Simulated assay, not measured.
Amino acid sequence: MPEQINAAVPVPVTDGTPLSAEDAKLVTLARSSRARTGAVEGAAVRDQDGRTYAAASVALPSLAVTALQLAVAQAASSGATKLEAAAVVTEASTLDGSGHAAVRDLAADAPVHVAGPDGSLLGTVL
């Protein structure tokens, strides 16, 4: 399978509206995944049944996967056919394009919340 290159997606600045409890849980799970492994990013997604999947980025000599790609892959491999929302915890100011594309494979309109390492919301990509 050829490698796809997806451009980074700008993250709009938050308007100060707090996340719902369900979406805040995604940020907490993403933060925990990142901290547990010391990874560059952590991510979490929620599927159509309310199940959540969390992951951290992987950077091995033979494999590189963003946290969001891995969380989406976990959901898909568990039978999820749609995503309701996603969250990424990162130090970057943009959303990785490959992770964003993976979310869009299962949901054209799911919000992707981007938070800093301290859990503060930077913005939401719609």
Rank of each mutant, 00 (worst) to 15 (best):
L63A: 15
L63R: 15
A64S: 14
A64C: 13
A64G: 12
V65C: 08
V65N: 07
V65W: 07
T66A: 02
A67F: 01
A67K: 00
A67Y: 00
L68R: 03
L68W: 06
L68M: 05
L68F: 05
L68K: 03
Q69P: 05
Q69G: 12
Q69M: 14
Q69Y: 08
Q69T: 14
L70V: 06
L70I: 08
L70W: 05
L70S: 10
A71W: 02
A71N: 04
A71M: 06
A71Q: 04
A71D: 03
V72I: 06
V72F: 03
A73P: 02
A73F: 07
A73S: 14
Q74M: 10
Q74F: 13
Q74N: 10
A75V: 06
A75G: 07
A76F: 12
A76V: 11
A76L: 11
S77W: 10
S77H: 15
S78G: 09
S78D: 07
G79W: 08
G79I: 10
A80H: 01
T81K: 14
K82I: 07
K82N: 10
K82Q: 12
K82A: 15
K82L: 10
L83F: 04
L83W: 01
E84K: 05
E84D: 13
E84S: 07
E84R: 05
A85G: 03
A86H: 03
A86M: 05
A86E: 01
A87C: 10
A87V: 06
A87L: 03
A87S: 12
V88M: 13
V89T: 01
V89P: 00
T90F: 00
E91A: 15
E91T: 15
A92W: 07
A92I: 08
S93Q: 15
S93H: 12
S93V: 11
T94L: 08
T94R: 11
L95I: 08
L95D: 01
L95E: 02
D96T: 12
D96L: 10
D96Y: 08
D96N: 15
G97V: 05
G97I: 04
S98N: 11
S98E: 06
S98L: 09
S98Y: 07
G99A: 13
G99T: 11
G99Y: 05
H100R: 05
H100I: 04
H100T: 05
H100Y: 12
A101H: 12
A101M: 13
A101T: 13
A102V: 02
A102G: 02
